[in-house]
Design a binder for these strands. Structure first.
Lengths: 213, 213
DNA sequence: CCGGCTAGGTTACCCGTGGTAAGTTACCGG
DNA sequence: CCGGTAACTTACCACGGGTAACCTAGCCGG
């Protein structure tokens, strides 16, 4: 185990990496990658800063000069994921034709993004805790974005109502995403359809009217 | 309520509570109450076992004889909330007439339950982390319950689809609940309506068709 | 080529907090 | 009144987050 840290800190050479120095930006990227992996594997609470440092191939104080604290490091991981998420979903939504297509494409892009970034996803939705506020900020970002789109599609609606609908969509997607991890039968496409069934079509037409009094 | 110790460990007398002994069941209840309060106030990670013990009016090892570990104590808190949640929501749903009423009543009961139990709620949805699995079990419980109801209302549907719809509803409710805490304008009734708008009625009829190509 | 300056890095340490072993005492049954 | 036991306390350990003090690779002017 632990043969080589991160990707390959000591590289392939026999020399045990005689203390190479690296630029600040590059080191930060390395640390973030290592942190996402370690935190998602062992869980934030059970992951030690030493473990992250070892994976990068440096010692603990280096992490602190870059990110200040363990929590700070977690927050930086979340922050990076956040930026990427908005990029992916907004790009998908703006390529759509009309509200229904927009909802479908955006949702599908969301599920596919989480497929690509499985470790970061685990970190976000299973081990948030301390970063609760930062994760909440991601949801707020997505909610505002969706509420804005809904506002264009339904100009007459009350702003609060638009926000409420956006909350429903964000919450539903988050839950569907977690569910997918437990049941491989649920593809990104299928999850998207389940969301569309309710959010777009509604249950009203899908229930057996004979049960309804 | 507040029988005695909880908020007043040293009681009222000048004597600093000369080591009173209490039955096992009673002590466990006291500890759970204190834990929910302390964990939700300071956050699980920042709350010390000593703080919980002090609030109860005992010393740390007592907590360990009852719950084994800090995580065990958190899990016990979650477990208690879980039982109560199913009681409340199933009671509401079974009092309903037809699917739509059932969805509405169940949802409303959920939001009102969280109003009653604000600290436990904070604990569940903002500071879970370690208890992620236990919180996930609550969601599974509610999802299964809702999928069962949907199965009765829509007998023709695919079981996986029913589960998917239930995930959408659970996720939407959870998110609406968190949102409500930040915006007092969103009453339990209003949040319920926003869910019904999408989950029952669907967006299809609510968008401006002129935007749709 | 060399001396020195600085940013990147390390060693060695502190202390708060989860967790426990061993001793102490309140209450109950006889 | 007197054991016995379950409830409780004191005193302690160890691990991990966080930091002060020191070190050195590597560039840069002379």
């Amino acid at each position: 185990m632990e043969t080589s840290a991160a990707s390959t800190p000591a590289s392939s050479s026999s020399a045990p990496s005689p203390r190479r120095r690296v630029s600040r930006a590059e080191r930060e990227r390395q640390i973030l990658d290592a942190a996402v992996t370690v935190f998602s594997e062992r869980g934030y609470a059970n992951a030690s800063m030493d473990a992250v440092a070892e994976r990068v191939g440096v010692t603990k104080p280096v992490l602190y000069t870059h990110f200040g604290s363990k929590e700070g490091l977690l927050l930086a991981c979340v922050s990076r994921a956040r930026t990427e998420l908005l990029e992916v979903t907004s790009e998908a939504a703006f390529a759509a034709e009309g509200p229904e297509d927009m909802l479908r494409r955006g949702t599908l892009a969301f599920f596919r993004f989480l497929d690509d970034r499985a470790p970061a996803f685990t970190l976000l939705y299973s081990e948030a805790s301390i970063a609760a506020e930062a994760v909440e900020a991601i949801r707020a970002q997505q909610t505002d974005f969706i509420a804005g789109l809904l506002g264009v599609a339904a100009p007459g609606a009350d702003p609060l109502q638009l926000q409420g609908w956006a909350q429903v969509i964000v919450g539903a997607c988050e839950r569907l995403a977690v569910w997918r991890k437990r049941d491989p039968r649920v593809t990104a496409e299928r999850a998207t359809e389940y969301l569309m069934d309710l959010a777009w079509g509604g249950l009203a037409g899908r229930t057996d009217r004979s049960v309804d009094p």
